[in-house]
Every structure is written in C-alpha cells, then in structure tokens.
Amino acid sequence: MDSPFTNLDRPPLREAALRKALLVPGGLWREVNVVPETGSTNADLAARADEPEGLVLTAESQVAGKGRMDREWVAPPRSGIAVSVTLAPDEVPVARWGWLPLLTGVAAASAVSRVSGVDVRLKWPNDLLVGERKVAGILAERAGAGVVVGLGLNVSLRQEELPVPTATSLALAEAETIDRDPILRAVLRELEDWYTRWRLTGGDARASGLLAVYTDLCATIGRRVRVELPADQVLEGLATGIDDDGRLLVTGSNGPTAVGAGDVVHVRPAAD
C-alpha cells in the first residue's frame, strides 16, 4: 500500500482532528476511526453490531466496497470518502427504519452542497447526483439490533479514474474545495442533526420535516421513470412524490403505485 505522502494532492484524513470535532459530550458519535485500508467499512461495523450505536469508520482505501444489490464500488486510495456509521433508533418503529438511507441522503447532499459549492441532488432511493451523474451512493444494512449505513463519495477522482461513464466527482464538478476533512465533518454533523430530529418524532418523516426536504432535493420527482423490479417486471410512469414510508410514487397506465427501495433493481429515466 502507498505511503500517505506519496500522493500529496490527496492528503490523508486527519483522525485526531475529526475526533476532536465530532466526539462531543452528549453527541451521537462516540468513536471515530480512520483506517488505511479495509475490505468494507459496512462489513467491519456489522461485525460490531452488538455494541451501542454511534460508531464511525472511514477507510482511505476500500478494496471490497459494495452498493445496493452487491454492486461493486471502487476508487483509488484517498480519492473519496468511504464512511460507515452504526445507528439503532430503538424508539422508532422498525417499519420506519427504511427512512434511514433517505435521511442519510438528505444530510449528505445538504452538507456536501454547502461545503463544496456544488449543487448536489438526490436520486431515489440511494444516490447523490451532480447534474445527471452519480457522485455518491448510500447502502443501509440491518445488523444485529440496528443498522449500518455506508456512504461512498467521489471527491478527487479524475475523468480517467471514473468507474463508469455516468459517474462524476466533486473535482470534476469544479468544487470550491476537495479537502475531505471539512466535507466529512459536515456530513456527520448534518447526519446527527437529522437523525436526532427524526428520532425525536418517533421516525415520523412528515413531522420531522424530513419528507419535505427530501422531496425538495429529489431529482427523480417530476420525471418519467422506468422502474425495474425483480422477476423482470417493469413499471413506467411519472414519479410524483414520496409517501410517508419513503416509497416512490409512480403513476403509470394502471394508476399510482408505491414502490419500496428493497423491491427495486434500477430506477432510470424513461425513454420519451
């Protein structure tokens, strides 16, 4: 593995500074660790699922990262942010836990937009977009009595390093900063704020304001979409909104249908 100093335009994260900023009395985060390399930050935290919530793990290089449906997620060392956290909202009905990846999306999009100056939008259910290109993805997995939520954000990737033509990075979007430390701090603070607000309302996305903000940030709403479902089923129609359970509302030829993130293989713009 490379030394942290072999690529000076991609400096290492400063673990001590992150801990000083994020580990505060009464706060959600109780442990922040930065590791040089791991297979998957989500898998590492899932192995610690019996511990109290509030763990944060970020890796400079993730060699077995994955997204939804076990899709591969790779990036050069220190070119992005690969971070996972543990959450266990015991007072929230489990039926509402499906909002956690959407909540994380709101927190990440808001924080990244504010710090980088790049307009980041949401693609339901788990992607962050700059224009029509993916800049980040979110993966939430049940683990023990809680949930591990992971975020992979492309920060300094160059054009030739992009994993697919439909991806982008903050650098390619001409961000005001590609310093990962303030971006990561902002994301985790925003996530704590939204998680606390949502949890205090018993996971009510409408009462907490989460539904309204998600709807405002969601680039999927108002577009004709093609929703690919298991067993080669396809739903085409107009995405009209998000319901109280975090499902996408699609109005097709047979009327309105609500589809959940766990039932969706792909959501893409529909052909005109």
Results as ranks from 00 to 15, higher is better:
Ala270Gln: 04
Arg142Trp: 12
Ala258Cys: 06
Arg14Gln: 15
Arg158Gly: 08
Leu229Pro: 09
Pro25Glu: 06
Val250Pro: 01
Thr168His: 07
Lys123Ile: 13
Glu132Cys: 00
Ala239Gln: 08
Leu249Ala: 11
Ala271Ile: 09
Gly131Asn: 07
Ala64Trp: 06
Asn126Cys: 06
Pro182Tyr: 11
Asp90Thr: 15
Pro4Lys: 05
Pro11Thr: 14
Glu15Cys: 01
Leu129Arg: 03
Val63Pro: 04
Leu188His: 11
Ser40Gln: 04
Leu188Cys: 02
Arg199Trp: 12
Pro89Thr: 12
Gln62Lys: 07
Glu161Gly: 02
Ala111Asp: 05
Gln159Tyr: 12
Leu13Trp: 09
Thr215Leu: 13
Ala145Phe: 09
Ala109His: 04
Arg96Thr: 10
Ala186Thr: 05
Pro36Tyr: 07
Arg19His: 02
Arg71Lys: 14
Gly27Leu: 06
Arg133Ala: 13
Leu211His: 12
Tyr214Asp: 00
Glu60His: 14
Asn7Glu: 15
Ala64Asp: 14
His266Tyr: 14
Gly252Asn: 04
Glu190Ser: 15
Pro101Lys: 10
Arg10Phe: 03
Val148Gln: 11
Ala95His: 06
Val267Glu: 02
Leu188Ala: 07
Ala140Ser: 15
Thr240Ala: 08
Val112His: 06
Glu60Pro: 14
Asp119Met: 00
Val24Lys: 15
Lys20Glu: 15
Ile138Pro: 01
Leu87His: 12
Ser208Tyr: 08
Gly39Arg: 10
Gly252Asp: 03
Ser84Leu: 02
Ala261Met: 14
Asp245Ile: 00
Glu176Asn: 15
Val267Cys: 03
